[in-house]
Design a binder for these strands. Structure first.
Lengths: 114, 114
DNA sequence: CATCATACCTTGTAATGCAAGATACCATGC
DNA sequence: GCATGGTATCTTGCATTACAAGGTATGATG
């Protein structure tokens, strides 16, 4: 009577945790952006939900990884643009290494062979 | 006063969620094993904690992914060996695809270039 | 009997993605 | 004016799950 979440789906959700911040850091390392745009991009790429981005951005700002400034838009409400701080850039490099080490380890367990 | 968990470390923990079950499925797809052995292998490979494996194996058995049988050991207490069911094998293939699609998407965001 | 490695297990905490919903701006059509 | 729809911000509450800390028990070694 419960088909709202299969084990396979919840696993996908769990997988995202920890990787989404990395994706946001990567996007911001290339150019400033605002939550709605980041969310739209990552929704298409990895299935991020829209209500995930706002708490995440607030966390990142609280952790000193990003700084924000408002910019008025001619096609809707003001956008809050985010820019990486030096700390954010440092954490990005660190987490990128962590991500690669982790995926390499998992891929070895998966591919194994022999 | 609080260095027990840095943002970088908690991100690593979050990253594991959802991937650990995949690793267990992969290991069991090659040979039967027991929780302590799986945990020891994954502790070395991806830093899994020992107390993580037992709730996980119970979840997987409850979900019908594995079946277990006890085997006495000559060097300690009995071992509860786990074997993949057909459902477990099916989910393994499905999650493996999901894992590869997800890591590919994240790597594109990371590597981007152009 | 004490100790150590093996092997199983439980309880409680922390972290966070998401659904659902609220608020508000701006342009278009009536 | 006013309704509608896309843009853009945000909050609340829930579900999931890795881990630390601790517990139980077996068998070998001293």
């Amino acid at each position: 009577m419960n088909e709202s979440t299969t084990p396979s789906e919840t696993a996908q959700i769990q997988l995202k945790k920890g990787a989404l911040q990395l994706c946001v850091l990567a996007m911001l390392s290339r150019k400033e952006s605002y939550a709605y745009e980041i969310s739209s991009t990552l929704a298409a790429a990895v299935g991020m939900g829209e209500s995930t981005i706002y708490p995440l951005m607030r966390r990142m700002q609280k952790d000193g990884l990003v700084e924000s400034h408002l910019v008025e838009s001619s096609s809707g409400p003001s956008r809050k643009y985010y820019r990486l701080t030096d700390a954010g850039r440092g954490l990005f490099e660190k987490q990128k290494s962590g991500w690669m080490a982790f995926t390499t380890a998992v891929n070895e367990i998966l591919g194994d062979s022999r």
